[in-house]
Nucleic acid binder design. Structure first.
Lengths: 204, 204
DNA sequence: CGGAAAATCCCCATTGATGGGGATTTTTTT
DNA sequence: AAAAAAATCCCCATCAATGGGGATTTTCCG
């Protein structure tokens, strides 16, 4: 029997996973938490074997909470679970002791597969992120310096016009950078780009 | 001499505060941190009297880190420092042990005043937030249930059109709610509203 | 030096969101 | 029951951003 805990700040997603796993005989969901602090408490009480853990959470984030959990219960299998393919975040989660990594847009079938794989003692990494560590250009960031600078300003809620003024460049240039980033990152729309900017604030 | 630490994930803001306080004879900045974990380390090393602490930070957020610091060093004066007037967050920071609260759009003069006030042992609360706890409608949220629901969907990156479809209402209704929220919260633009939604994910 | 990558700028049609109005219906509170 | 608040919808002009082109100039690396 695999004991599983889910830590994720979107309750809707927790509900979905729970109802999906309800009929899996080998998996028992021992609890869920909406933030890192609650997860710590839960782990103290139930000591689950596997934890599905969002990286970005209130109170204590996935990386910090993974470090703490692994320190206390080294045999816990923590699977990082996040929206974006964040190379930095992956590295840090692995360093903290995670043994699996999946993206939130994966099917629940993948999630289930990941849970079973790590429960057996094997690592599990989402196929979609292999290209980022498997091939040659592993260490270089997708975004250029200028793009990161602009993304930083976007994450502070600034519009293209304001960014242009601040950097003494044209609005059209900012728009071009925006478009290039959206294309490079495979996102769609200003909302996702802003989310990405805020969520990815792991690397600087 | 007031020993001060700054915890804030925007380095630019730290730099600004540091250069502003450089010439204040009674204040010594003993360090700064970009996330909650780094702040904990810093506090262990330097034991500052006053801490300016952002609520939303990577690793460990302001509320959780305040709890931990106050547990270890009960005499530390922690001033919460955030972008928005979040009633829930204020309450939780106070509960965690903070003795001051200021908004990031305050002048650095206010910041200085707050640091000196809490250093003397008095609480300091930004005047701009007084109305929220001083008058009659103290406990009720600014936003209605429907507005919060829509804000939740906005924070998941959805557009007005998508939200309208999902809630079986007209796009114009969603737009109206959006506008009302922006007006009520004193924000400007979709970017700030999305930031607010993500940052404010403290109350649910 | 020479080519690749980065950064700069422009046009255009379309979609999304803002801000200013206004209006009706339902629900809640007094 | 009357007043207040919440939720619904509409019009319109304007601004912001997307996605599709294209183009030039710097800057960096081999």
């Amino acid at each position: 029997m695999i004991t599983l805990a889910i830590a994720e700040d979107h309750q809707a997603l927790i509900d979905g996973i729970m109802s999906y796993m309800e009929f899996e005989e080998d998996i028992q969901i021992v609890g869920h938490a909406n933030d890192g602090e609650a997860l710590l408490e839960l782990v103290h009480k139930k000591q689950p074997l596997v934890i599905l853990c969002d990286i970005r959470m209130p109170r204590i984030d996935g990386i910090a909470v993974t470090r703490q959990i692994i320190k206390e219960y080294p045999d816990t299998r923590i699977v990082a679970f996040t929206m974006f393919d964040q190379q930095e975040a992956i590295t840090q989660m692995i360093a903290a002791g995670a043994v699996g990594y999946i993206l939130k847009n994966s099917s629940l079938e993948i999630v289930l597969e990941a849970v079973r794989t790590v429960a057996e003692g094997n690592p599990y990494f989402d196929k979609k992120i292999q290209f980022n560590e498997g091939n040659k250009n592993s260490s270089k960031s997708l975004l250029s310096t200028r793009e990161k600078e602009i993304l930083g300003l976007i994450s502070r809620g600034k519009t293209s016009h304001e960014i242009a003024d601040q950097l003494f460049i044209g609005k059209s240039t900012v728009d071009t950078h925006r478009k290039n980033m959206i294309r490079k990152l495979g996102l769609s729309g200003a909302g996702e780009l802003l989310r990405y900017a805020l969520e990815k604030k792991y690397d600087f």
